[in-house]
């Protein structure tokens, strides 16, 4: 696979604060790449460096083979960015916001109209097109932010916590859009998020803490490496579970038993067939991975 973003030994400090410490990773073409970390871990700083808004103290960043220090203009045409906070003009209408941003990419007239139609269909923007941005709900604004980032059909989409604070319906819509962009247009997505279940759908995950990578891999690799598996058993008495001499916790309607891996789970079930009549075996969650590697909990609910 072609590497579209490559970061080597990136360092960035703000006075005495080392925001990014020797970060190295690469993002492959078409990949959904999740970048995890608590607030202040260095995610947004890294994104700002990739977008050319901050100068790295040390290290090399290449996007689509272009060194951003030398060829940022070539990089910009392929990059779409959705910032953490909406940066569009609140006093202007949605269509004006999109029109003026499109103009900065040299997109106007019929070309703009065509692209606008595509984005309206993709992000359900038609009903709000003529409304003032400041009067839209958080979810509607987010959709406009994404439309702005996609106005020039970028090959790489960078999303800095795109679903934070959104209602489940809007989050689902945004995820449908991201998946459709990847599937239909082959867009590479670099995502930072607080929601672990979103990271679980990524192709590759990098967890950073204190500006350095503390774990990386596919969600499955991370789960296998940093968490065990769980057997959830329903409709049994606690005394019977206790007799198994394993670590467990009570949950609604049953008990969650911790096992190191799937073979231990299999042995337990095979050796106690009367106990395991109604059960499920579940892999550890990304929350558990994050907690295991950083010792910190990340906020976020279920989609």
């Amino acid at each position: 696979m072609k590497k579209v973003i490559e970061i080597e030994n990136l360092h960035k400090s703000f006075k005495d604060v080392h925001a990014v410490n020797g970060l190295s990773f690469s993002v492959e073409e078409g990949q959904l790449f999740a970048f995890l970390g608590v607030n202040g871990a260095g995610k947004s700083t890294t994104i700002s460096v990739i977008c050319g808004q901050l100068r790295a103290d040390e290290g090399k960043v290449t996007v689509n083979g272009h060194d951003i220090e030398k060829n940022m203009n070539d990089v910009k045409r392929n990059l779409g960015v959705v910032f953490q906070n909406s940066v569009l003009d609140k006093s202007l209408s949605v269509i004006d916001n999109l029109k003026y941003r499109a103009g900065l990419y040299g997109i106007s007239g019929e070309k703009f109209k065509k692209r606008l139609e595509e984005l309206c269909a993709l992000l359900q923007l038609s009903p709000v097109l003529k409304r003032t941005l400041g009067k839209l709900s958080g979810g509607q604004k987010r959709r406009v932010d994404i439309a702005r980032a996609l106005i020039h059909k970028p090959k790489i989409l960078i999303l800095d916590e795109p679903t934070t604070g959104l209602d489940p319906q809007t989050r689902k819509l945004i995820w449908d859009v991201i998946n459709s962009l990847r599937k239909d247009d082959g867009v590479t997505v670099l995502l930072t998020t607080h929601y672990m279940e979103e990271a679980a759908d990524a192709d590759y995950v990098v967890i950073i803490d204190g500006g350095s990578i503390v774990a990386e891999g596919t969600p499955l690799e991370l789960k296998n490496q940093y968490t065990g598996d769980f057997i959830t058993v329903y409709g049994v008495e606690e005394e019977k579970v206790k007799e198994l001499n394993v670590k467990y916790e009570a949950i609604a309607g049953g008990f969650r038993i911790s096992v190191t891996d799937i073979s231990e789970a299999t042995n337990l079930i095979v050796n106690n067939p009367r106990l395991f009549t109604d059960y499920e075996v579940i892999k550890g969650k990304m929350d558990d991975v994050f907690l295991a590697v950083t010792g910190k909990k990340l906020g976020g609910g279920m989609l």
Partner: peptide
């Protein structure tokens, strides 16, 4: 507001 950052990621000089 941060709009400046957004404008500067466009290819316009």
């Amino acid at each position: 507001t941060g709009a400046r950052n957004d404008l500067l990621i466009t290819p316009a000089s």
